[in-house]
Nucleic acid binder design. Structure first.
Length: 248
DNA sequence: CGCATCTTTCCTGGTT
DNA sequence: AAACCAGGAAAGATGC
């Protein structure tokens, strides 16, 4: 779909990116390109020049935030140049160089016995810090049983985040030997989880719901309770300690 | 379509 | 008081 199609978009849609001079929600732009041109810079500058300077700038979350705000506003999405959230994702990816997405991590469904830790390293000298974000299979795992890529289970998703140092600011191992990890930014992880799962729900994903799903793992041994806020532990059924270990 | 699995949603009650 | 934790119940989403 052409980016040059004419649609009115309020500055508020792009709040996360706009410099403070453009915070008037009522100001309309015919397209994102027009908005961009009106500032005389490019989208990547918006991204790196996040206006909430009082907080540590998190480009990944800013992008998700903006895309979701854009998508969730049905009044605008109905007449938007984008017919699908993937179009928004693509547009932002094409015009920004700061969105870090993880590479595909091959996992087998049951015990992940064929998993090669070396493949999950993202900080090796030969691999770019930020992979090509036009790749649409973010967070997908390869199912050895079916031979197809699929959306990850929650515990697989958390493992992907934990093994990708680009997400070390939202989740970290606090005891690698024991498989104990802590969600540093629970709500951010909830939003990432919603993105990873790709479900079409109007409801917001919350830490409370993610935590409930994690607690369901207790009975199956995929997770184990661990003292401390936002803290969980991989259980034996997750393959931790037998089929896989933290890679760094 | 039925079924199984994995969440998702909502809730109550206890704890920090 | 607010937020978190534990877990019951039921519904939703998805894949086979």
């Amino acid at each position: 779909m052409s980016k040059s199609q004419s649609h009115a978009l309020p500055a508020g849609v792009f709040d996360a990116y706009l410099p403070s001079v453009l915070t008037d929600e009522d100001q309309l732009f015919k397209s994102l390109d027009v908005l961009v041109n009106s500032v005389g810079t490019d989208v990547s500058t918006f991204c790196t020049g996040h206006r909430y300077f009082a907080l540590p700038f998190d480009p990944m979350l800013a992008d998700f935030e903006a895309a979701e705000t854009f998508q969730d506003n049905t009044e605008y999405s109905m007449q938007s140049q984008f017919s699908h959230t993937d179009d928004i994702d693509t547009y932002l990816c094409e015009n920004s160089s700061v969105i870090p997405h993880p590479p595909n991590v091959p996992l087998s469904t049951s015990v992940m016995s064929t998993y090669d830790p070396k493949q999950s390293r993202t900080s090796s000298p030969s691999s770019p810090k930020y992979v090509n974000c036009q790749q649409k299979k973010n967070f997908l795992v390869h199912d050895q049983t079916t031979g197809k890529d699929r959306r990850p289970y929650l515990y697989e998703f958390l493992r992907i985040l934990l093994e990708n140092d680009e997400y070390s600011h939202v989740i970290q191992f606090i005891d690698r030997k024991q498989g104990v990890f802590k969600l540093l930014k629970p709500q951010d992880i909830a939003e990432l989880w919603r993105h990873a799962k790709g479900r079409n729900s109007d409801n917001k994903m919350t830490y409370d719901k993610v935590a409930r799903a994690l607690r369901y793992y207790y009975s199956s041994g995929i997770m184990q309770p661990n003292p401390g806020r936002y803290t969980f532990k991989f259980g034996p059924k997750s393959g931790f300690g037998t089929a896989w270990w933290p890679v760094y």
